[in-house]
Simulated scan of single mutants.
Amino acid sequence: MASIFSKIVNGEIPSHKIAENDEFLAFLDAFPIAKGHTLVIPKREVDYIFDLDQEEYLRLMLFARSIVPALEQAVPCNRIGMSVIGLEVPHAHVHLIPLNSMKDADFSQKIKTSPEELATIAANIRAGL
């Protein structure tokens, strides 16, 4: 069964896309823990990030890194944190999280965002790429 992320890649579920290429996709988390919380995934469905071969893993990290300057510009913060947890969706993914304090990295606390706000944030990030 395809993961929710594979359904996003295939266009079956809408998302607020930030960037994509042939291998990877970055989009806003629909249930963010901070404004601008972005997910970066391989388009190929792989459950565990450490099951990616070394070259694909490195390309995923470089793709994620390429999003950071635009994310910092669109969502002012002290820094962008990166987290790889991998339990919530069986598809490898990296969280890019704008941080001002350690509280911003609390995955048990979601923030409320409207679809319109997510669309605006995504457009602002894309404008910086």
Results as ranks from 00 to 15, higher is better:
Glu20Arg: 09
Ala30Trp: 08
Lys17Ile: 02
Val46Ile: 15
Arg126Pro: 02
Ala34Glu: 03
Gln109Ser: 12
Ile97Asp: 00
Asn21Phe: 09
Lys110Val: 07
Ile18Leu: 06
Arg44Tyr: 09
Tyr57Thr: 02
Ser83Cys: 11
Leu118Ile: 10
His16Ser: 01
Ile80Gln: 01
Ala123Lys: 11
Ile85Arg: 07
Glu116Trp: 08
Ile49Met: 09
Asn10Thr: 12
Val40Leu: 09
Asp22Cys: 07
Lys112Asn: 15
Leu62Gln: 15
Ala70Pro: 01
Cys77Leu: 10
Ile121Phe: 03
Asn10Ile: 10
Ser66Phe: 07
Phe24Ala: 05
Arg59Glu: 14
Gly11Glu: 13
Phe107Gly: 06
Ala26Met: 01
Gly36Lys: 04
Asp29Gly: 02
Ala105Gln: 07
Val89His: 07
Lys110Glu: 02
Lys103Thr: 11
Gln54Met: 12
Ile4Cys: 03
Arg44Ile: 09
Glu72Tyr: 11
Ser6Ile: 08
Ile85Cys: 02
Phe31Lys: 14
Ile49Asn: 06
Glu72Leu: 14
Ile33Thr: 02
Gly36Gln: 03
Gln73Ser: 15
Ala119Pro: 08
Asp29Pro: 09
Ile18Phe: 00
Asn124Phe: 04
Lys7Asp: 13
Thr38Trp: 00
Gly36Leu: 00
Phe31Gly: 10
Ala127Asp: 13
Ala64Val: 00
Ala74Cys: 12
Ile121Asp: 06
Arg126Tyr: 01
Ala64Met: 01
Glu116Cys: 08
Ala64Phe: 06
Gly128Gln: 12
Gly11Thr: 13
Pro115Glu: 10
His16Cys: 05
Ala2Gln: 10
Ile18Thr: 07
Leu39Gln: 00
Leu118Cys: 02
Arg59Ile: 08
Leu71Asp: 02
Asp47Lys: 13
Leu52Met: 08
Phe107Thr: 00
Leu28Lys: 06
Met61Ala: 12
Leu62Ser: 15
Ala2Gly: 04
Arg44Ala: 14
Ala127Thr: 11
Lys112Phe: 13
Cys77Gln: 09
Asn10Cys: 13
Met1Arg: 07
Lys43Glu: 13
Ile4Trp: 04
Ile67Val: 14
Phe107Trp: 04
Asp47Ala: 15
Gly36Val: 03
Pro14Phe: 13
Asn10Leu: 14
Ile80Pro: 09
Gln109His: 14
Val9Leu: 03
Pro76Tyr: 12
Ala119Thr: 15
Phe24Ile: 05
